[in-house]
């Protein structure tokens, strides 16, 4: 979490190999991400990372099904493989009935679920989400966050950048960034979501008041 311009998205972009760090290094599963060539980083993104964007970024030219298949097609996976992958995933996300429609025909919440399916179909090492609920109403946001919580419980790492304390309270661990530096970190542990939410709010207030928190 952090204010606008704190460097959240920059960090996310660097982890996503879309940007280069000015100093330091990014390690993921023992791979140094800061020294990949253009080709290597494309391949790395495709195989190890999943993306969920605030503005969904579905392609209008593809049906929802083809949007989800896209990363697998780029990795040259056979059609049967893709089909097998999609079945359980679409059940979890509740998008079975949307698959053969176009992105333009479905609502924002539905689009985001399709986008999550696209991000997850490659079994990424880490799912990067940049303000995934930013363009959604509270009802749809909750659905999306529940989905994140579910997949997280199944062992999927999710790294989410958000403004919303609500969204942050679903996480197991929260990092606060200020002026490009990690300012504070919280672990949820055994706390309930409400307790954790309160802690985040406190921490955020402290952050805004520029206090040191233990």
């Amino acid at each position: 979490m952090g204010e606008s311009g704190a460097g959240k998205s920059t960090l996310l972009n660097i982890i996503a190999t879309l940007d280069q760090p000015t100093s330091g290094e990014i390690m993921l599963n023992g791979t140094d991400l800061s020294h990949l060539s253009e080709n290597e980083s494309s391949q790395f993104r495709r195989e190890h990372l999943g993306f969920v964007f605030q503005s969904f970024n579905l392609l209008d030219t593809f049906s929802n099904r083809d949007n989800i298949y896209l990363p697998l097609v780029l990795s040259k996976k056979p059609h049967q493989f893709m089909d097998n992958k999609l079945k359980p995933l679409s059940k979890i996300l509740g998008i079975e009935k949307l698959l053969d429609r176009q992105p333009s025909e479905i609502s924002g919440g539905q689009k985001q679920r399709v986008a999550i399916a696209r991000a997850l179909i490659t079994d990424p090492s880490i799912l990067l989400a940049d303000e995934p609920t930013g363009a959604l109403d509270s009802n749809n946001s909750e659905k999306i966050l529940n989905v994140f919580e579910q997949i997280n419980e199944r062992g999927q790492t999710v790294l989410m950048v958000t403004h919303s304390v609500q969204a942050a309270s679903y996480a197991q661990r929260t990092l606060f960034i200020k002026d490009g530096k990690i300012y504070n970190k919280l672990y949820r542990g055994d706390q309930s979501r409400n307790q954790y939410l309160q802690k985040i709010i406190d921490s955020l207030t402290a952050l805004e008041n520029n206090e040191e928190v233990d």
Partner: peptide, 11 residues
């Protein structure tokens, strides 16, 4: 968008 998902320049 596709480049973000992992389409390289060559592809």
């Amino acid at each position: 968008i596709m480049s973000k998902i992992g389409l390289s320049q060559k592809e």
